[in-house]
Design a protein around this nucleic acid. Structure first.
Ligand SMILES: [Mn+2]
Ligand SMILES: [Mn+2]
Ligand SMILES: [Mn+2]
Ligand SMILES: [Mn+2]
Lengths: 220, 220
DNA sequence: ATATTTTTTTAGATTAGTCTAAAATTTATT
DNA sequence: AATAAATTTTAGACTAATCTAAAAAAATAT
């Protein structure tokens, strides 16, 4: 049995692992779980005993295969519920993350399968994130961060790497939604901020922090 | 803030209150929460401090108005989710209770409202139980227990007073579903068991225990 | 009206998850 | 290589929810 809390730790370690090849630090986990490092250490020991992570003290943590499986199941549920909330209940994409944080812990394989069918087996959630299939396979797709795109290269916005209501509402305000055509017009050397065109006839200025959280693909 | 566990206690006290006018006993709560009487006593003291129940030691417990409000919200969510699971995801009515026990604790007024709309504001759940509206009002309907119906009085099955998979599958096996026409053919004095006709051309024999858990209304 | 039985409460422990403060270890800097 | 700084772990404590065993109160039976 994996508890609600343990599931959250696993999900967060999974997310951090996607960004680095090396071990995940206690502090990194503490930041995302919104707990103190001391609490994380306790939990890592427990997860390690359950063989869900491999962990040696002071050496950081990694998911085991079993741990990754659990994490992917939680992520699958999170994203399927987000699709449900947006496509079926009419929520806006900036309102669903918090609710999905609760729904993702509902335990029923049958429920997930039926929900998946009901939603026509979506490949992506409302934020453009890929949804793992029932075997934990993530659909492949080579999205890049807008922050790494060169000047004058035309791209299409396909996703976001951050789900907070704040961030998503900011994007809406400056006219950035999934599917929008983006062209980088100018990059400021000193802080990597950008001026971009969002397909319409208005340009906008975004910080590097924002650009890093926008996922795009090239236009062929 | 009302915790998951506190919500369950309130829901159970609500259910017990529907069956009696008097105070609810510690043991009665312990039985339904599947805990020991000592644990119930602790919880009652806590709920009392939060003004969700009125409780004096050795005198049993009652919901306050505030406590009833919380209980009704949880019951509303439970029943709406059951409708969703059956009507939208195609679950059988005997498979949904346990899943709804988890879903009922998801916290979002907005979610409940949208779910209600999505389901076209149903008045009854798949077991025939009335769904409280957003103000906590239960739709009125004068269903009676089959156990109190006289011989030869024709009635229609409208609900069940028990949601366990076991019980519901047993009903299916003997041909009893919502909407079926029932006529009591014989009542055995010594144990109140009955022979009934279920509208088709087969009769069946049911115990008093079963009859008490079947809700019916008269045919005009 | 006592005695017995049943119910309920208290006392004391346990587990999961968290915290603060102090100690240990690792990493970075001189 | 020694020292300073940052990170991580340990020690000890707290809260929520639960338990068992014993004590207290209420209900029932004689
Ligand atoms: Mn999300
Ligand atoms: Mn998402
Ligand atoms: Mn139910
Ligand atoms: Mn029901």
């Amino acid at each position: 049995m994996v508890s609600f809390t343990e599931e959250n730790y696993l999900k967060i370690i999974y997310k951090l692992s996607a960004e680095t090849d090396s071990e995940i630090s206690t502090n990194a986990v503490a930041e995302l779980t919104q707990t103190k490092a001391a609490s994380v250490t306790d939990m890592l020991r427990k997860l390690s005993e359950k063989q869900l992570v491999s962990y040696q003290k002071y050496q950081g943590v990694r998911l085991t295969e079993k741990g990754e499986e659990v994490a992917l199941k939680v992520i699958r549920k999170h994203r399927l519920w987000e699709v449900f909330l947006v496509n079926k209940l009419g929520f806006n994409w900036d309102e669903v993350h918090e609710i999905a944080e609760e729904l993702e812990h509902i335990n029923s394989e049958e429920l997930v399968q039926r929900l998946d069918d009901f939603l026509d087996c979506p490949q992506f959630d409302p934020h453009g994130d890929p949804i793992p299939d029932k075997n934990g396979k993530m659909p492949e797709f080579g999205y890049k961060n807008l922050s790494g795109i060169a000047i004058n290269q035309q791209v299409v916005m396909m996703g976001v790497a951050q789900h907070s209501t704040n961030f998503l509402q900011y994007l809406a305000k400056i006219g950035l939604n999934l599917g929008v055509n983006i062209t980088v017009l100018e990059i400021n050397d000193f802080d990597k901020s950008m001026t971009i065109n969002n397909g319409g006839n208005s340009n906008c200025f975004i910080s590097h922090e924002v650009a890093k959280n926008i996922l795009v693909k090239n236009v062929k």
